[in-house]
Design a protein around this nucleic acid. Structure first.
Lengths: 124, 124
DNA sequence: TATGGTACGAACAAATTTGTAAGTAATGGG
DNA sequence: CCCATTACTTACAAATTTGTTCGTACCATA
């Protein structure tokens, strides 16, 4: 993301809400457009930047970079840079991120159920 | 929210992601700034508009209305209007929304744990 | 010397979400 | 007639997120 204004009402509200609700706090961490997709790709192990880019349809390098940076800052993934040329960097889930996996799967099931209920097509 | 441009890249990306990932789909439904707060307040039963407004610190009537409308459209809550004057309207969780509750509680626990790990203060 | 691959960064623009400040309808009570 | 109450709506503005288009460093290889 870009920088945020420290004292906007928007920012203040976010702080207050996140500060007082673990649930909203948790959902905010994974709320970016591409974050869950990235995390899911990493469920089975490390991937490098270009592998992520290639597996995620439609993401731009900028977006991938931004979301990776945030996830790293939030402690959800670990970035490893290898001193090689051309550069090689890979990403993997942290322990705390791995603890989310079973919860995701429940949420995902719920999503599938809700989708059927609402008759929203799944385009796998 | 306001109307969205039907064919922006933004919109297209969202469609594709949501269409192909039940998890992202699920998280999107509860992703609005105030949505989880609203849903949480309704965990123990119906509340009317003004009760929600009074229980949620900092929300404006406009935001409350917007988020309620979306949640209703998404099938997460049921709106009941009583033909009285002054108007009376109340909101309650739908069955499918109630099924989220146990998942929330896990997510919330995770959030609390993560918060400690990151040393982010909880301001209850 | 020119080229190519990798993982970004910067400047800018468009889209979307959130917030501000009003105003509305209907009706009972004074 | 005037006012209060409730659950909104509308027009507008500010903030934030997302997307587009470039450009960079590094060194091995041709």
């Amino acid at each position: 993301m870009g920088k945020r204004k420290e004292n906007s009402t928007n920012m203040q509200n976010e702080k207050v809400i996140i500060g007082g609700c673990d649930l909203t706090y948790a959902v905010c961490m994974i709320g970016g457009r591409w974050k869950l997709l990235i995390l899911c790709k990493l469920e089975n192990g490390k991937l490098r930047f270009s592998e992520l880019r290639n597996r995620i349809n439609g993401i731009t390098e900028r977006m991938l970079t931004l979301q990776l940076r945030e996830l790293e800052k939030e402690g959800l993934l670990k970035r490893t840079v290898y001193p090689e040329v051309p550069p090689r960097v890979d990403y993997e889930l942290t322990e705390i991120a791995k603890e989310l996996v079973p919860i995701w799967s429940q949420l995902s099931d719920w999503g599938g159920k809700h989708r059927k209920l609402m008759n929203t097509p799944y385009v796998g």
